[in-house]
Design a binder for these strands. Structure first.
Length: 119
DNA sequence: CGGCTGACGACCT
DNA sequence: GAGGTCGCCAGCC
């Protein structure tokens, strides 16, 4: 099994509601749009925990639009097998988002949502 | 304690 | 643009 940190603990920068907070923000991303791990971290007031946003999404429920979260370069982040998720690509494609041969989203800067809600 | 590892990101050549 | 380096934080040896 891949290593998946729990990210819980009362005295941690990343507190016990971390997952819930991340999920709540992800649910606000409109269909056909995307945002980044870093933007979500920043919305939480924790700019330095972009990586943890990714870890949290590893535990995302199936109904969460986790596929709308990509890295700051607009590409699909590689998983444990160092390959981007085919499932993520399918889900995005289904929303009209196209990805080029180098896993980069077409018109990323246009589709990117930066004004995320602050919990 | 020290080292290593991540669905990351900002910088520097 | 393509690589490489470092900082970041929590968890697990």
């Amino acid at each position: 099994m891949p290593y998946t940190p729990t990210l819980h603990g009362p005295h941690r920068i990343v507190g016990p509601n971390f997952h819930a907070s991340v999920f709540a923000i992800v649910r606000t991303i409109p269909r056909g749009r995307v945002t980044t791990y870093g933007d979500i971290a920043a919305a939480l007031g924790l700019r330095t925990v972009a990586r943890h946003v990714g870890f949290a999404l590893a535990a995302a429920p199936p109904d969460l639009p986790w596929h709308r979260v990509v890295n700051s370069r607009g590409t699909l982040s590689p998983r444990a097998d160092s390959q981007p998720s085919a499932e993520q690509r399918r889900r995005l494609r289904r929303e009209g988002i196209t990805i080029d041969s180098r896993h980069r989203i077409t018109d990323f800067s246009r589709l990117r949502v930066t004004d995320l809600p602050r919990p």
